[in-house]
Simulated assay, not measured.
Amino acid sequence: MKLAIDVYYYPDRAKAVGILFENWKQSEPDEIITAFISDVAKYEPGSFYKRELPCILELLKQVDMFNLELIIVDGFVYVDNDQKAGLGKHLFDALNEEIPIIGVAKNPFAKNKKLVREITRGESKKPLYISSVGISILDSASNIQNMQGDFRMPTLLKMLDQETKR
């Protein structure tokens, strides 16, 4: 099973949503899980993971980790070309480096270009920025590239974004 996760922040809490799916070509998730987190850290520039990681770990309490093949996060695995840990790497480490992580970002980050693959989907000219740990970057980019959907964002990831903000 694969899990894509996103977190949305309200003034006084956060909502973490996960979409579980088996096949990269699916257009509907097998399951949607949600966690509300009331004690959320303030945003700290350069340390986004300090805010997001606890929310993700709370959501993961609902998942059978034994059957989890990989996790997709909204963001980067590394924040610079020297492999300074970003959200994805911090999550990988928190999970004892046992579950591969794919980062899918909508905007570029200038300092990590060597560790990111840009992909375009559908007729979009604007790329997605793919990074990974525990799985090859080429496989990661190919898997996201080939997910269901005719637009820039794969159908399941678009659905996740909408569900998170709902």
Rank of each mutant, 00 (worst) to 15 (best):
N112M: 03
F92D: 05
D74R: 03
Q83Y: 15
E28R: 15
E98V: 08
A85M: 09
M1K: 07
E44N: 12
K106L: 08
K25N: 12
D74K: 05
V116D: 01
D161V: 03
I130G: 01
L70C: 11
Q62D: 10
Q26L: 08
L3Q: 02
V77N: 03
G75F: 05
V133I: 09
R166L: 04
I130M: 01
Q162A: 15
E163Y: 06
F66T: 13
N146W: 13
D80T: 09
F66Y: 13
F21K: 07
L3G: 02
E97P: 06
N146F: 15
Y8S: 11
I37Q: 06
S140M: 04
Q83S: 13
E118S: 14
D80M: 09
A35Y: 07
V7W: 03
R121I: 10
Q62Y: 15
Y43D: 03
E163C: 07
L60H: 11
Y129R: 01
D30W: 09
L70M: 10
A14F: 07
T164A: 08
L68G: 05
Q83G: 05
G86A: 05
V63M: 08
N81M: 14
T120H: 09
Y8A: 10
N107S: 12
M1N: 07
T34I: 11
R117S: 04
V63I: 15
F66E: 13
F109H: 05
P127D: 04
V17Q: 02
M159H: 08
L87M: 02
V40M: 07
A94W: 08
L87D: 00
T164L: 03
F109S: 02
S136D: 09
V7K: 01
L68Y: 09
V116M: 01
P108M: 12
L87S: 01
D161G: 03
E31V: 06
A94H: 09
I37D: 01
F48I: 04
N23H: 15
N143E: 13
D12S: 15
Y9D: 02
I19D: 00
K113Y: 12
C55L: 10
P154S: 15
P11M: 09
S140A: 11
Q162W: 09
F36I: 15
S124M: 13
P29L: 00
F66W: 14
K89A: 13
P108L: 06
I72L: 10
G75W: 02
G149N: 11
N96P: 13
S38A: 11
E52Q: 13
M65P: 02
G122W: 14
S47E: 12
V63S: 08
D74W: 02
Y10T: 10
A16V: 04
V73D: 00
N96I: 06
D93G: 11
S136K: 12
G103A: 00
F48K: 01
K42S: 13
V73I: 10
A94I: 04
V7A: 02
Q83V: 09
K114M: 08
P11Y: 14
A4N: 06
K42E: 07
L70T: 03
T155H: 11
W24M: 14
A94V: 06
G18M: 03
R152G: 04
A85R: 06
M159R: 05
